[in-house]
């Protein structure tokens, strides 16, 4: 009898632990600290010494992940971010010779246009978001290859003036702070999460859900357009591979940050920051360990799967839109 009781108790306890919000909130942070700690020991401190280099890689991912974070909050997905970054980077390069402010605006507008393109097919033509964005990913990747294959599109030398930590970090912080306030303390965030949790009811509560979904895709594109400026400032030119696999990096970063993949009420803004940091540190740690690309991908795949399994919001069993 006693034995039976303990048997019944165990899975319940485990389930509770997995399902608890405590774990959801704390695991990414614990993971981040653990990963920093482990890699510093394994690399004998060389990771800490190259922190500037590591930090330099985080800006683009962090900025563009913010836009995708909004999309995923409302239950959508976006695989076209890498191509958006690529196109916007080329636009920034071309315009940087004319005027730097114009280059920034050009990048943002280019991103927003592609985002609007996604949004149009998703909202007006009612095609699932991941299908639309996979299509646009290939479509615009094609454009990038066409424009940058023979030789990389080089930016004006003036962009190097902006390659300073204050500019890059400053831009990143501005995006993060505005996004955080909008998400956490305005109706924007509440509506977004509500769409992720149950779109029909949100519509009946007076939210113009179609318009909102369209604008969010546009916004995500615009934010990535801004990230393109940071990218060009950092690299000076756009190659045919610019932004390649950014979409996967963002997705992994967000999931590592504890983001439920179906969006909804359990989404938190911290997911973006913790997740991006965790992803970059993990990635660099593995490189510094001297692992081959193949092994790295293998390890990343396993970690990704574990996190998705842990954070999937099983109460919210709707299919991803």
């Amino acid at each position: 009898m006693e034995n039976q009781e303990t048997n019944q108790y165990k899975p319940n306890f485990f389930k509770k632990l997995i399902g608890s919000n405590m774990l959801r909130a704390s695991l990414p942070i614990i993971g981040l600290i653990a990963v920093c700690f482990i890699f510093n020991i394994l690399t004998k401190g060389s990771m800490w010494n190259s922190r500037k280099l590591i930090l330099n890689q985080i800006y683009v991912v962090l900025i563009s992940a913010t836009g995708v974070f909004f999309i995923m909050s409302m239950g959508g997905l976006d695989f076209s971010q890498g191509s958006i970054l690529g196109i916007a980077s080329i636009v920034v390069c071309k315009l940087s010779g004319v005027n730097m402010l114009l280059a920034v605006i050009g990048g943002v507008v280019a991103g927003a246009l592609i985002g609007a393109f996604n949004g149009f097919f998703y909202v007006n033509r009612k095609i699932k978001s991941f299908v639309v964005t996979i299509c646009t990913m290939f479509l615009f990747r094609g454009f990038i290859k066409y424009m940058a294959s023979n030789s990389p599109v080089a930016a004006s030398m003036k962009v190097y003036d902006y390659d300073t930590t204050p500019v890059k970090l400053g831009l990143t912080l501005v995006v993060l702070i505005i996004s955080f306030v909008a998400f956490r303390y305005t109706k924007f965030g509440i509506n977004l999460k509500a769409i992720g949790a149950g779109e029909k009811a949100v519509k009946f509560a007076g939210v113009r859900t179609d318009r909102m979904k369209f604008l969010i895709y546009m916004l995500a594109g615009a934010i990535t357009g801004l990230a393109a400026f940071v990218n060009i400032v950092k690299n000076g030119s756009a190659t045919a591979n610019v932004g390649n696999q950014l979409e996967t990096q963002i997705l992994i970063a967000l999931v590592l940050g504890g983001m439920p993949i179906s969006g909804g009420a359990k989404v938190k803004f911290e997911n973006v920051i913790v997740g991006s940091l965790l992803y970059i540190v993990l990635n660099n740690g593995l490189i510094m360990m001297g692992l081959t690309t193949q092994t790295m991908q293998l390890i990343q795949g396993i970690i990704f799967l574990i996190f998705v399994a842990l954070f999937a919001d099983r109460e919210n069993l709707t299919v991803i839109k």
Partner: peptide, 17 residues
């Protein structure tokens, strides 16, 4: 389906409109 966002707090459901 049409009146309530099920997987969301009572608070957000009441405050939504």
């Amino acid at each position: 389906n049409e009146s309530l966002v099920m997987n969301q707090s009572i608070r957000d459901n009441i405050c939504l409109p």
